[in-house]
Amino acid sequence: MNITAILKLVPDLVEELEIDDKGTGLDMDWLRLIINEFDDHAVEEAILLKERSEAEVTVIAPDAEGVDDVLYTAAAKGAEKLIKLTGDFEDGVNNHALARAVAHVLQNIQTDLILTGVQAHNDLDGSLGPLLAEYLHIPYAGYVSSVELNNGNAVIKKEYPGGLIGEYEVQLQAVLGIQAAEEPPRYVAVSKVRMAMKSATIEELEVGELDLSGGPEISRMFQPEVAERATMISGDDEEIASQLVEIFKEIGVL
């Protein structure tokens, strides 16, 4: 059994985001990139499956600043093979283009199951998983929070609103969009990542010129203007607490 996890880096939302001069994209100079949190769950689910069923795990990521560290971290968690897609990824890339590039690469990699995060917060032209599945002509299911392997099929749990869960059987080869791994993504110590840097190698695959068709045609990007922002309560901790207590009294919870 070969499992492939696909991950990408996204802007860290804790940092301030700036719009570029054209007003149609994020200013990449100011971005700090981190792993898409749902891709982190996809990697974790791949590793959990490997531990239960002796699968081999390959992790693929498009090039971005900091991606080597993220790939080595996946190796430290137990991934066998690391692949970095190189090409014109610098200015960001739409999901249609990325899915096509990944689909192309996967034609030469033997894999039974492909896991990726159910979405990324900057998805604008669809999510990577379902786009990829269709380029590969294989089935897709998203919002997945559990995967088991059973006679060449995957048995998955798919989440619906309010906590309802559907259990599905999915024929492999398939792509699954992971919402949450069965366990929280494991923590690996920096020393283990350093060891992985020495023992693991990142294979670089040049994907050639990216075909950007199918991507979004953004006419304007902006920070939302808010109708009414919260009234901010300020002061030292004592003053703030007293003001909050006054509000609690006013609304009758105290």
Binding site: P11, R220, Q223
Partner: peptide
Amino acid sequence: SQICGGKIMAETPLS
């Protein structure tokens, strides 16, 4: 569209 956890809005035309 609302992206980046609600921190950014993006406008696209109807094709």
